[in-house]
Design a protein around this nucleic acid. Structure first.
Lengths: 366, 366
DNA sequence: TTGTAGGCGTTATCAT
DNA sequence: ATGATAACGCCTACAA
């Protein structure tokens, strides 16, 4: 005797026939319910592993779900639970090695907790950064992580107004108002400069980022601090600007070499800057470290492979990403989160730094 | 005379009071509706810029939405429209320079079209790749892009079963079943080898990736093709395996240098391999290109900054990402999409390659 | 142990 | 031009 279990429900025509062309629709919890001859909530419970459901029926339901290729809709779930289990990650650009390493750590940690991560590039454009953050908010991410945010301080209120938990990584705000993870900039930079001083250098230059960003300010500060402690007067002409990338460093180096009394060592804002500096130095026929020593900051993967290998300050980027994610989780779960996490920098001595040459000032050719 | 516009609707207590602590709830379309004294659908229409709504009321609604900090819920919208306007991007790891450049192009294109991108690392672990793709499907992404997928072919059915439009970038499947964007591997590799041959080299080695991946097979093929055309016999001992990373290249180089008749030039599977090869060569006191010439593949950003700068085959990575995204959009909109997009490779000659030395075979020290 | 009855915040389909 | 009303797919009471 054929049952008439609601055969007017033509809406569910996609239920049993899989492998056809499934243009129809993904199976829903109701489809499974009908097939298993139970109600939807029971299916929901079974699939969530609730102990309240009979082991037999649970097994049957799981079997059907499996066969039918059922995959719960995270969007429907998100609508009712009001939590999407997703976070937004805003970077200036993903192809920046620093950002991508941090992103790696974040993705790893997020994935381990069942969170998905939306990736958004701001291209260092404040207007675009604003837009992507808005978009993230519309998607109802549970939290946001922003690395090396370059937006102006006037934009902070908007972030605050969003009422989305947020963690910044190496943010550029003088007085960060939110949770953040950042490297010990002054200390790291000081270590680099002290290393150079220990090697006998006294004419030490600093090639910075574009001005106005806090990390640059802090690293310059660490550099100056080292000089002061060593009793070396700060020479303004030796502190020049770059742009955080190889290109800008080239110009900076040319400026430095044009000085009456050029430096015997250069502290670079970061490894990218060091990359450009080394290249420009080489183009002038100067040898590293024989003629000029160079230090970087970050310890990007290629630093160890340069010729000569770059002496630099290591940032545990992947780890910093994890810390940011862990902290964000605390924020999400209502636990007390650490407002400011400061990560130790580490000096990695390689071949790009060496003792200053005797009477080694100013000689341009080896 | 005070109106009693439904003051029992205590649910909407979060409507007007902003800037307090808004723990309550994000304002919904209904909150706006009540404030504007219209129905929700009208608000929906107004906010979408429908011409069907009175300009005055539309303006009023928009004003209220603005003041109240309203942001439409993409998750609710996704539930009803069945389109999330999001895509999933699966990479082996984001901190791989190739992947991150491609990701950059994808993110850019997606963002321009109002799409968001979920980032997922597979860590080259097939099991994990399976998991992340499942997770992406649960999130109801409209499409998926996978770069350098390393999963076995047996896994393809699952991807197909997902019924989610998919585009692969430089996939490793022999007979790709889906849409893909890939570089001209054989041609590119052949160009590198021919460049070396033109410089007089005849003992040319090839350091590959781990075996089994198609791009490696194709690049090896291009290398052999160049040899054949030049009438040079293929020497099996000169084709060794690396692992696509600097580490593996070191071992490979040591193997090659132990040969009776070592190579005077090395074609590397990619730039990362070349990085390791150059380093290993340098450790042995060999000079590049005087003693050994080296070529890479990819033209990652650091290639131009190596010492010597690396001669390599350029892949327009960012552009390939855009092409993949464009193609995916076609798939999504039902347009006919190109099944296989093949991108031209370009030889970039720099300083790591030079003419073979007269009687230059086998001399280990410069 | 299971089913019934909402409701999450939108859009879509009807009316009016 | 606007308003009811009904989905979308899931979860969470509450009832049985």
């Amino acid at each position: 005797m054929p049952r008439n279990d609601g055969n007017k429900a033509a809406v569910a025509q996609g239920g049993g026939r899989l492998g056809q062309r499934q243009l129809a629709r993904q199976p829903s919890i109701k489809d499974i319910a009908r097939l298993a001859k139970v109600s939807h909530p029971t299916v929901s419970r079974a699939l969530q592993g609730s102990p309240l459901v009979n082991a037999q029926t649970a097994a049957k339901i799981r079997k059907i779900a499996e066969d039918t290729g059922y995959r719960a809709s995270a969007v429907a779930r998100g609508l009712v639970t009001r939590r999407t289990r997703s976070i937004g990650l805003v970077v200036t650009t993903v192809d920046d090695p620093f950002a991508s390493e941090v992103a790696c750590g974040i993705e790893q940690a997020a994935n381990d907790f069942g969170y998905a991560v939306y990736l958004a590039n701001s291209n260092a454009d404040p207007q675009r950064e604003r837009r992507v953050v808005q978009a993230l908010a519309e998607r109802r991410v549970d939290g946001i992580i922003v690395t090396s945010s370059r937006v102006g301080a006037e934009y902070l209120p908007m972030l605050a107004e969003l009422d989305v938990p947020m963690v910044l990584v190496n943010d550029q705000y003088p007085g960060a108002f939110v949770h953040s993870v950042k490297i010990a900039n002054p200390e790291g930079s000081r270590m680099a400069a002290e290393h150079l001083i220990a090697l006998g250098h006294r004419r030490i230059a600093y090639i910075g980022d574009r001005s106005g960003y806090q990390s640059d300010t802090e690293r310059l500060e660490g550099y100056r601090d080292a000089l002061t402690r060593a009793g070396i007067a700060f020479a303004p002409e030796l502190a020049v600007q770059g742009d955080g990338r190889p290109e800008g460093a080239g110009d900076a180096v040319r400026t430095l070499l044009a000085l009456k009394d050029p430096p015997t060592a250069i502290c670079c804002y970061n490894d990218m800057t060091a990359l450009g500096a080394m290249r420009a130095l080489g183009e002038r026929g100067l040898r590293i470290p024989d003629d000029v020593s160079v230090t970087g900051f970050d310890d990007l993967f290629f630093a160890a492979y340069l010729e000569p290998a770059l002496t630099t300050i290591r940032q545990p980027m992947r780890h910093m990403g994890q810390l940011a994610m862990d902290n964000l989780f605390k924020l999400l779960s209502g636990e007390v989160a650490v407002a400011q996490i400061k990560v130790d920098a580490e000096l990695i001595v390689r071949a790009s730094t060496g003792p200053v040459r005797a009477q080694g000032r100013g000689n341009r050719r080896g």
